[in-house]
Design a binder for these strands. Structure first.
Lengths: 308, 308
DNA sequence: ATGGGGGCATAAGCTGGGCTTATGGGGAGC
DNA sequence: GCTCCCCATAAGCCCAGCTTATGCCCCCAT
């Protein structure tokens, strides 16, 4: 009201200006945990005035009082407790990001070299890396992402210690253990006619409908092509899972994705799963390693984590 | 190696310096979606050089090439696709944060005033608000968090249109619909002796063990006290779910929390659930409204979302 | 072949947010 | 009453990120 600014209809567009940055959120979490601005500042290696000012500017930005200050410490307000919890989820995602990014970078002198398919690297590995870091903080992990064949090759040439692939059968020359199951799902935006569909799609219907797909060569695409007999018709081909999801959410058409990739979207009903019949879209997720060389050390540790 | 910096053992402490800020992550997502730095820049309302420089500094920070630039556009590298997906999850959490924060602030002239218990406000409402915003972008929602009694009062005095509470029975004077089920769980860090325990805990054992708890008066605490006959022994009392989780994860002792609150921690094995027997820790999550006044308009919309 | 447009990079300069140091006031405990 | 631990304010510094102004490259259409 009264501000000209952009022509954005408030709620669309850059969220970064409306959400405090990660440093501020971490600070808030520290304040919640430690009960004082000064203590939180010390933990983060900044000075108390810096913490004080940062919390205050966060309160100004959000328009809500977050902490009750007193000469004996600071406690969260009710709103502050909520905000802090929401902040925790952002920070959690950031930690997963960091764990993954570090593995992408560490290529040198890593004690554990992992090769994984895209889907697994995207959705499962960061969590595993976090858990591993919790138990073995000094284990440097490197990550190479590629398709099943690339993973197998890395293992056989000794460039990787442990691999993860999705698919119906284990690559030859490798031992494997099934660690989880996955399934491709057909998803549409809630506004799409298929969202209300009860009668399952069959193979021919799926094959004759233009779909939003990953490009040829991706594991997801291969499974679908195989299931349909090489007939999947692309509406558009996109280069990343994220792009496919975004297109589907925006209503461009039906997409086919791993259920790992759309779990959250389904929960939030940004996407709706369409029942499918007569098409085998299931696949296993496997840990793989060179035949006869049971994983030891950090690799064994990681393998244990993945099976729980 | 070679840098003095902090005495932090790399992996501990402030994550904010190792993770690009939200603006950069949003930019990366836009680049992935639109296929060009310039187009992404336009969408975010910045200039092309700004986008170029920001992506470049993000690549420098992460030590990984994210996009392949060409005179005809930019595409993600393999590593970039991974990073973009991980970034998407941070941004998603940020959107939930924003939706929640906006509801905390909007107190005035909101078309839908919601009152909710802490647990529901923390874990479920942001997702609902996002979904609501997707369908009805112009619905201003305000959120008041409080215990069941407070929620009931807000509804009865007309200060709120729709409420959400957790508990065994619906407050009197209100109509209600069960929208989900919840259960308190006993959780410990993986290093805690109870983490390997097979034999379920019984009520007396739980009552005689000092626990990390929310403070008296919180809904979670009340359910536990009731289940144990008012006997829960606090090891420490903390003011927020986040603080309780952090204490439990750090191994301070067993904590009792809603399973909604610890879902992610259990999945990542940062916490382990301890089996419990002979203590009724289940509770319903209910939508509530003044008796006889079925929700209409935006309230009905939201109610539909919660049952999906 | 040639000009235009879309794509990206580099350079120079400005601004503001977030940091620091320095200082002051308020409550609790020995 | 002295001391310690809170927090707030003020003044100044610095760098990250933005903008404007260029230039190069490639493709395509005229």
């Amino acid at each position: 009201m009264g501000s000209v600014e952009e022509e954005r209809p408030d709620g669309v567009g850059s969220i970064a200006h409306r959400v405090p940055d990660l440093g501020a959120l971490e600070l808030l979490l520290a304040v919640a945990r430690l009960g004082s601005l000064g203590a939180a500042a010390r933990e983060l290696g900044i000075t108390q005035p810096a913490a004080s000012s940062r919390i205050r500017s966060m309160e100004r930005q959000l328009g809500v009082a977050l902490v009750d200050r007193s000469p004996r410490g600071s406690r969260l307000t009710d709103a502050g407790a909520l905000v802090t919890d929401w902040a925790g989820r952002i920070v959690e995602a950031a930690r997963a990001f960091d764990a993954g990014a570090q593995a992408l970078r560490d290529r040198r002198d890593s004690r554990l070299r992992v090769a994984a398919s895209m889907t697994i690297a995207e959705y499962l590995l960061p969590g595993w890396l976090l858990a591993l870091r919790a138990g073995r903080p000094d284990t440097a992990v490197s990550l190479l992402a590629g398709n099943s064949a690339a993973v197998a090759e890395r293992l056989l040439t000794g460039e990787a210690d442990l691999g993860f692939v999705e698919g119906l059968d284990a690559p030859s020359g490798l031992d494997s253990a099934v660690i989880a199951h996955d399934r491709l799902v057909v998803v549409v935006a809630p506004v799409h006619p298929w969202a209300r569909r009860r009668r399952p799609l069959d193979a021919s219907e799926l094959a004759s409908t233009p779909l939003i797909l990953r490009e040829k060569g991706s594991g997801t695409r291969q499974v679908l092509d195989t299931a349909l007999g090489g007939l999947a018709r692309p509406l558009i081909e996109l280069s990343s899972t994220t792009a496919v999801k975004a297109a589907a959410v925006s209503g461009a058409g039906p997409a086919v994705l791993s259920e790992l990739a759309v779990g959250e979207e389904l929960a939030l009903r940004r996407l709706v799963a369409v029942p499918v019949d007569g098409v085998s879209l299931a696949r296993d997720l496997r840990a793989v390693w060179p035949a006869g060389h049971r994983p030891t050390g950090p690799a064994r540790e990681l393998l244990t984590l993945t099976r729980g």
